[in-house]
Every structure is written in structure tokens, then in C-alpha cells.
Design a binder for these strands. Structure first.
Length: 422
RNA sequence: GGAGGGAUGGCUGAGCGGACGAAAGCAACGGUCUUGAAAACCGUAGUCUCGAUUUAUCGGGACCGUGGGUUCGAAUCCCACUCCCUCCGCCA
């Protein structure tokens, strides 16, 4: 959520910043509605003041003055009528405001879509192979650890089943990543995978992205598309005490996304399922800390890829590719020699006070000081399926087996996955 | 799923429809006292919002789980919802 004050006082600045996102917004409607709203508010509050005075007067006079009571009844009716109008105006203003995306930082490069994203650095050398590296959708099934057909049989397209050492590899990765981040100062939280509507709104996924979410109509539960959603909800409506920040969380959750995109290269294999696992990093910080926090967050994400010894590059998202709530984002993309492409395994974003304002999370900088909205940041650390892909494809051997990265071996209990003897 | 009870400020906890933004206690902050601290005493204290002087004040409005309603007037009465607690049933 953007600050209404900012929209009111610097509409041109807001207009220009939003234009950089190459997206339409209801800015003008908000400004018009706001003018209307203040007019109505002044009027209705004056009437309320009158009624409060009158009611106190009535209480004081004995016997009760019927004339004054009648007069206040009329005032009351006018208040009620104005309230109805005010409520309508307020509601459509809130609706419009809820559709305003965050403003990109000045440093974010301009661009209409992902084609304008900029690679800011790379790490590691893609391995060279004496054979043509296979894609994971061949490696996995050949090893008997990945079953697309049966996944589809039980749940439809875009689902798969991991089995044996494949399933254990993913579990080892989750466990290892959690431990890895805990050692770097994050606190683990285990969260509900289904949350209330209000929580999804607070993180910015509603109302705009309802189409991409799974939803239980009977209880109005929403399946989390990322741990970012329930974590943002954790402190909603609270004022945190001065010493509470920074808060660093790491959480493992399953993630559920409708992802209506059609079949093709982008969703082949395990690349983009309706359900996937993710270890997520999340920071709640004081406003002046968020820039530095983003740098460290991306470094924490990169450290995972480095520990796994998987080549990756860091990409800064341009204005047009930025998420709704983000003001600056960096993706980490791992090299997948079988797919022959860079796969996005993480996206780290600084949301500024956008989510803090939307979910009403504030903190008090010092005893007695006025509360301010917190800044929030999130980054995947990392998304499991694509890391699985990257491991299978990077660590594949000529004989079809897959080596396990060193750091994971204590967690898997084996150092390679070989095809079962025929 | 059934039957009851509850939700008030940072916490505990009062609150006959008008005197209640809300007693009291605790915690907090400032001060007095003290060599310092504790104790004691005095004082200050919530959030949001509108307007006027213009950045410090002054005045108004709203907020007692949420949303409606009754009333000149609601923390207080009525309805719905949410959450919590107790008991029964069911269940990993």
C-alpha cells in the first residue's frame, strides 16, 4: 500500500514512478475520491460535534427537553445519510489504493519486461561434459527417483512424485538450508500453509492476484503461494517495541500456485508445478536499514548456491518486471546444462514500507517515539524443485548417475544416486 | 459436531445507557529525596484522523474483539461474525 499522504502531496512523483513500471493505475481516481472524502469528512464531523454537544445538553436538563431531542434526531439522520455516502467513497478509494503497486527505487533500471533485466554478476564455471548433458526429465525417471506419469495420474498435469533417494535428496536440501540460514542468524518458524483472506491482502497478493491462488470457499482459507504471506501476517496490526528489530526469519513451507500458463518450455519437467517446496528468508527492519538488508539478503541467498557449488548469476529486475509489492529485486538464476538455460531459484525483494503499511505493522524507534511502518524484505533461500533440477543436471555423470554435493552428504547419507541394477 | 463461559489501554482488572478515552493496581517515563541505588512521594503518559494557526500548540472526530442495529446519546442494550477457555463427542 502506498501512503495516501504521498499520493496527495506529490502526485506527479507517484505518477512518474508508476509509469516506469509500464502498468496502468487508478491514480487519478484516487485523487478525485480523496477530495470528495475530505469534504464529506469535514461536514459529517461538524455534525457529530453538534450532536455530541446536544446530547450532553440533554443529559444535563431535567426534565428532558423534547424540542432539543427532536433537533438532535434530525442531526442524527443527516449524519447517517452522509455516512452512507462517505462509506461508498471510502470503499472505492480503498479499492483503488489496494491496486497501486509499490514505487520502484530510483536505482532500478527502466524496462518493460524481463528482457530488460540486467545481469549484475555471475559465480562459478559451468562444467564441461564429455557427453551431451541430459535434462532432468530424462535423468530423474531413468534413476527411478522422479515419476511424472503417476504424479499426473493422482493430481493432473504439473504434478510429479519424488521417490527413494530423490525424495530424500529434497528433504536433505530443506533440512540443510534451514540449518545453513539458522547458523547465519535467522530464526526458524513453521507456519500454517492456509491463511485468512486478510493475511493474503496484507502481503499484497490480493485482490490483484486472486487468479493465481488456490482458495477454499467454504472456510475462506487461502493456500500460501509463498511463506512471505504468513510471515507478513505474523505481526499484522502490531506496534513492535524499540528493541524488536531487526527480525530475521527462515521458514520452510510448501507453496501453491495456480499458474495458468500453458504447457511449453517454461513448465517442462519440474520447473513450474502447482505445488512446490521452498525455504524462505524474511526480514523485518527499521526503514533506514532496508537498503543494507537487501544487500545482505542477496548475499545469504548466493551463499547457498556457492555451498552447493552450482554456477549462478544474479539478475537485477527492471521496473517492468518488479513484483507488485517490491521496490527493488534481485533474482538468482542457476545454470541447468540439461535444460540449457538459467533457472530462477530465488527472488529477493525489498518491499520498503509497502507491506508494513498494508498489514499495519509498525514499530517504535525509541521509548515514547511515534510508531513508524516497518520495512520488509523477502528472498527465497531457495526454491527446491529448481535446485533439484540444477543438482541433477550439473552433477550428472556419464553413466547416468548423479553425484551429491559435498555439503549435503551428511544429510542424505549417500554420495551419489545410481540407477538400480537392472 | 453439541452445551456453556469470555474478549476493556503495555499487563492485571473495574465499569447502574449520559459524569467514560475509560477506576484501581502493576509495569514505563520524568522529577523530588539520596553519595549512588532501592523505597517513598509528586507528575506524565494510547492509537488513528480532520481543521486552524504553521512544525509547537490549540480545537474537532473516531477507536473498549469485528460488523450491523436500537437511542437525542452505547464499553454498557439487541443481532451476526471472529477468536479464546471449559465440558462432552469424534479424530492423526
Amino acid at each position: 500500500m502506498l501512503s495516501l499522504d504521498l499520493i496527495r502531496n506529490q502526485p506527479d512523483l507517484v505518477r512518474q514512478a508508476i509509469a516506469r513500471r509500464h502498468a496502468g493505475t487508478p491514480l487519478q481516481a484516487i485523487l478525485d475520491l480523496d477530495t470528495q472524502r475530505s469534504r464529506l469528512l469535514v461536514e459529517v464531523e461538524a455534525l457529530r460535534a453538534e450532536r455530541n454537544r446536544g446530547s450532553k445538553e440533554i443529559a444535563r436538563i431535567q426534565p428532558r427537553p423534547p424540542h432539543l431531542i427532536e433537533q438532535m434526531r434530525i442531526v442524527g439522520d443527516r449524519i447517517k445519510a452522509l455516512d452512507v455516502t462517505l462509506d461508498t467513497v471510502q470503499r472505492s478509494m480503498d479499492d483503488s489504493l489496494a491496486l497501486m503497486p509499490n514505487l520502484p527505487n530510483d536505482s532500478v533500471p527502466d524496462g518493460p519486461d524481463s528482457s530488460a533485466n540486467a545481469v549484475v554478476r555471475s559465480w562459478g564455471q559451468p562444467r564441461s561434459y564429455a557427453f551431451k548433458p541430459k535434462p532432468h526429465w530424462e535423468i530423474g525417471p531413468a534413476l527411478g527417483i522422479l515419476d511424472f506419469e503417476r504424479g499426473q495420474k493422482i493430481s493432473g498435469s504439473r504434478f510429479y512424485v519424488l521417490a527413494g533417494p530423490g525424495a530424500k535428496l529434497q528433504r536433505a536440501l530443506i533440512q540443510w538450508m534451514l540449518d545453513f540460514h539458522i547458523a547465519r542468524g535467522y530464526r526458524e518458524v513453521y507456519l500454517p500453509f492456509m491463511v485468512r483472506r486478510q493475511v493474503v491482502f496484507g502481503a499484497g497478493q490480493l485482490p490483484k492476484f486472486a487468479d493465481n491462488l488456490y482458495h477454499d470457499a467454504e472456510e475462506d482459507f487461502w493456500m500460501v503461494p509463498t511463506a512471505e504471506v504468513p510471515i507478513t501476517g505474523l505481526y499484522a496490526g502490531e506496534i513492535l517495541p524499540p528493541d524488536a528489530l531487526p527480525i530475521h526469519y527462515v521458514a520452510y513451507t510448501a507453496c501453491f500456485r495456480r499458474e495458468k500458463m500453458s504447457a511449453g518450455k517454461d513448465i517442462r519437467g519440474m520447473k513450474r508445478g502447482h505445488q512446490f517446496d521452498k525455504v524462505e528468508l524474511y526480514k523485518i527492519v527499521a526503514p533506514e536499514e532496508s537498503d543494507a538488508a537487501l544487500v545482505r539478503l542477496v548475499a545469504d541467498v548466493e551463499a547457498v548456491a556457492q555451498a552447493l557449488d552450482l554456477p549462478y548469476r544474479v539478475v537485477q529486475l527492471c521496473t517492468g518486471d518488479l513484483g507488485f509489492a517490491a521496490r527493488e529485486s534481485y533474482d538468482v538464476e542457476m545454470w541447468a546444462p540439461g535444460c540449457d538455460e538459467w533457472l530462477e531459484v530465488s527472488s529477493s525483494s525489498d518491499c520498503g514500507d509497502f507491506q508494513g503499511r498494508r498489514a499495519n505493522i509498525r514499530y517504535r524507534p525509541a521509548q515514547g517515539a511515534k510508531p513508524v511502518f516497518v520495512h520488509t524484505l523477502n528472498g527465497s533461500g531457495l526454491a527446491l524443485p529448481r535446485v533439484m533440477i540444477s543438482i541433477m543436471e550439473n552433477y550428472q555423470q556419464a553413466d547416468g548417475s548423479v553425484d551429491i554435493p559435498k555439503v549435503l552428504q551428511p544429510y542424505t547419507g549417500f554420495d551419489r544416486i545410481a540407477a538400480p541394477a537392472a
